[in-house]
Computed example of a mutant assay.
Amino acid sequence: MARIQVKKGLRTADRNLMKITIPTEISTGFIYACMGFGKNKPDADSLELIKTASEQVLALADPHAVYREFPLGITEELEELYILNEKNKLEGKAIAEHLAGCNQCILMAVTMGMQTDKLIRRTQITDMARAVALDACASSLIEDLCDQINLQLTQEYEKQNKALTSRFSPGYGDLPLTAQNIFSKLLEMEKKIGLTQNSEHLLIPRKSVTAVIGIKPVKNHNKSKTMTIEENREACKVCKIKDTCTFRQHGGFCGKK
């Protein structure tokens, strides 16, 4: 891995809350994968269940996001990757490879809000099939929102002649969930968007995402093209459970971009 130099005087001002738009529809491919249909079209009853579940999720969604830009560095002794200072080390080979060649990164956090979580929990008591559909719809929507942010950031950094890597979240590959502590501290997630974590470092509200995106300078800057689904499956390549993941077997994957 190439040595990453810390860029002195890098602007790390908080960009505060990011405005994101709730789409009129939720991507169905991700929903089908979550529910075990894979590439097969669900039956009529399932399609109706998904339709009504999507409408409920869209009606309750209250998304918020926050992101900040930080410098990246490597410790002199063990060449461990860190964000901003050596107190914020990113463990694992997968994230080091993902951010190779980057001297800056973006930390982002996105949440759907508590109402979606509450709806799913209530429905689990009375109608498990509907609860599964609601969960799948919420999971797909949070990915749609992350893709929306990805697109906005890509367009912004293109103007600076910089390219972005795909997003990489705690729990991918060998990056431990304890990395959530770095996001929580540097993004002030609880203060900014009400996003916390439990003792096992799982996010609360549950339908939330944190991710790091690398920033690279590009010599020959070209307008980015829309990536295909196969090109966006980078997380699967480094994931520890890629060979046994039932979600992946049904055609799904974590993180669309």
Rank of each mutant, 00 (worst) to 15 (best):
G73I: 13
A59E: 12
M128C: 02
N40V: 12
D14K: 00
R130S: 12
K216G: 09
M1E: 15
G252L: 10
A138K: 05
N150S: 05
E230P: 11
L17C: 03
I213W: 06
L202C: 11
A100Q: 11
D43Q: 08
D243Q: 05
I22Q: 11
Q197E: 14
F247G: 00
G9H: 12
I125R: 09
C146Q: 14
K207V: 13
L49I: 11
G36F: 00
E97N: 10
A131P: 05
P205I: 08
E86P: 03
E158W: 06
M227P: 13
H201D: 11
T178G: 10
K7Y: 03
K242V: 13
S140H: 03
L141K: 07
G251C: 02
V212S: 03
E158A: 08
T246P: 07
N232W: 06
A129V: 15
T116A: 03
Q155S: 06
Q56N: 01
G73C: 06
M227C: 12
I142G: 02
Y172A: 07
C254T: 12
A53L: 08
H64Y: 04
G214I: 14
K207M: 07
F30A: 08
N40P: 06
G73W: 07
C137D: 13
I74N: 11
G255F: 05
M18D: 10
P205G: 01
Y157T: 15
R3C: 06
A44G: 04
T12G: 02
I215Y: 04
P205W: 01
E48Y: 10
S140D: 13
E190I: 15
R122D: 15
S139W: 15
K207C: 04
C245I: 13
L78Y: 09
G101K: 01
T75V: 15
I106W: 13
E200D: 13
Q249K: 05
A100F: 04
L49K: 02
C137S: 07
N150W: 12
T126M: 10
A94R: 01
